[in-house]
């Protein structure tokens, strides 16, 4: 009786969306183990805040926003924990990865994923990432050009 019905139990939705949440987390962290930690933290946060979700719009929109906020909080904590003099950018710097989409500079792959893959509008994606729409358009453009150039280099090497 006290068990939530399937439609109101956000845990089921979270599990169903896990591959996509994990993919978005990878664009933020650039590393699989950090991404899993981020997904776990964000999912817990979403479950605790599930009474905020009233079923309006796309659930992913809300979950991605929570994930981005959680990652920002985490970055802030790391920044405080780092000894003075160390560039915090290095803490979130892209880890070396064979995947071209994740090897792009910070912010580009997330912008690309949300617009070109997840199908959010530029405005929605900018809101999720907490940036201006024109900044998102610039990141999206840079990501497309970067991917095209990486693909061209790979093709040349193979030839």
């Amino acid at each position: 009786m006290s068990q939530p019905s399937p439609s109101t139990d956000i845990r089921r939705d979270l599990v169903a969306l896990l591959p996509r949440l994990r993919r978005f987390a990878l664009t933020l962290t650039g590393d699989a183990s950090d991404a899993d930690l981020l997904v776990r933290g964000s999912a817990n946060r979403a479950i605790q805040k599930s009474h905020h979700w009233k079923g309006e719009g796309r659930l992913e929109n809300w979950l991605f926003s929570i994930m981005r906020t959680t990652w920002s909080d985490e970055a802030r904590k790391r920044k405080k924990a780092e000894p003075a003099g160390i560039d915090v950018g290095s803490a979130t710097e892209r880890k070396k990865t064979a995947n071209a989409v994740l090897a792009m500079p910070d912010g580009l792959s997330a912008a690309f994923l949300l617009t070109d893959v997840e199908g959010f509008t530029c405005q929605e994606a900018a809101t999720i990432l907490g940036i201006q729409a024109d900044q998102l358009a610039a990141r999206l453009c840079a990501a497309r050009l970067g991917l095209a150039s990486a693909n061209a280099m790979t093709s040349e090497r193979r030839a």
Binding site: P19, V101, V117, R144, L145, S149
Partner: peptide
């Protein structure tokens, strides 16, 4: 180039969905 970049990225991200999700996470 922009269209090609968009296609390449989309394919790469689609491939990422095929990776298994850790069971302990689920």
């Amino acid at each position: 180039a922009l269209r090609r970049g968009s296609e390449v990225g989309r394919r790469a991200f689609d491939d990422m969905l095929k990776e298994p999700v850790p069971l302990d996470l689920v």
